[in-house]
Write a protein that binds this DNA or RNA. Sequence first.
DNA 1: GTTGAAAGGTTGACAAA
DNA 2: TTTGTCAACCTTTCAAC
Lengths: 165, 165
Amino acid sequence: MAYVSKPELDTRDWQLLEALQQDARQGYAELGRQVGLSAPAVAERIRRLEEAGVIAGYRAVVDPKRLGFSIDAMVRLRCDGGVCARIGALVADVPEVLECRRLAGEDSALLHVVALSVAHLEAVLDRLLKIHPSVSTTTLVVLQTPHANRPLTRAMWQAAHAMEG
Amino acid sequence: MAYVSKPELDTRDWQLLEALQQDARQGYAELGRQVGLSAPAVAERIRRLEEAGVIAGYRAVVDPKRLGFSIDAMVRLRCDGGVCARIGALVADVPEVLECRRLAGEDSALLHVVALSVAHLEAVLDRLLKIHPSVSTTTLVVLQTPHANRPLTRAMWQAAHAMEG
DNA sequence: GTTGAAAGGTTGACAAA
DNA sequence: TTTGTCAACCTTTCAAC
């Protein structure tokens, strides 16, 4: 509960966070070995990190390419205010949209889309355009992804605070 | 090994993939209950999915907001070809960049950046501009994220193949 | 893929720092 | 309040089928 109002993570909390971001399927005993705690102590710390919302869940990372989704694109979306306010709900039934963010600025929203082929990408884009007449898109095909879902580490947290001044 | 050349997933493989994307810390016995298999059979299927690269890993999902990173921005980057070819390496030591993709199209790259404050975001952007004189940025602040890292499901795979024709 | 047995991990209650 | 210890229970793992 202490975390909810003001998360103050100590060295071991950070070590556990980093270990779980690297491999979420490690057991408590194994984690305890890495941070120098007993398994029950590890379990209790992780339970608190989960309760505080610092850890939002644990996910298997699946590679879309290995499932046949050879195309990866970012779609910049512009649309009327009313449409964009509901963009999350409007793309909910387009499963090729893996990520959807509403933005402040030049573009109204940004989508991360996967597709089986160029023909399939075309079909997905057509479907997005049919959401509303005001919708227009700019599609950028991803050539490579040098960094994806980088971990949040203590080093990064400290560097950020030092930078902020 | 069969998966490497041509991943053909059956119903149970997909069920396991979906279950692990929902909660990667479930045990083999629990997964077995869900898909109607014994624990060793589940372990063997998961081992093959990992070996085939379909499952790339297991990660704890950490909420940057709960760690103080209250700002979430997408940064569109334009730069000279030589610089953008090495963009991954060039932003490797900027830990606030959680994602980095090289793109074909109007923008050369797209970064997902987190920051503690507007002042910190400014500092990060200054650092990105200092990578090379040819670099210019357009920053779009994320207002909300209706969908993040949606799971790849069998339903989606089938819908995509139906759509492709 | 299943079964069964050995090894080891998890989880609770309780004691101690 | 947080961690460690202990014991009961469950899971994982590997062999044989």
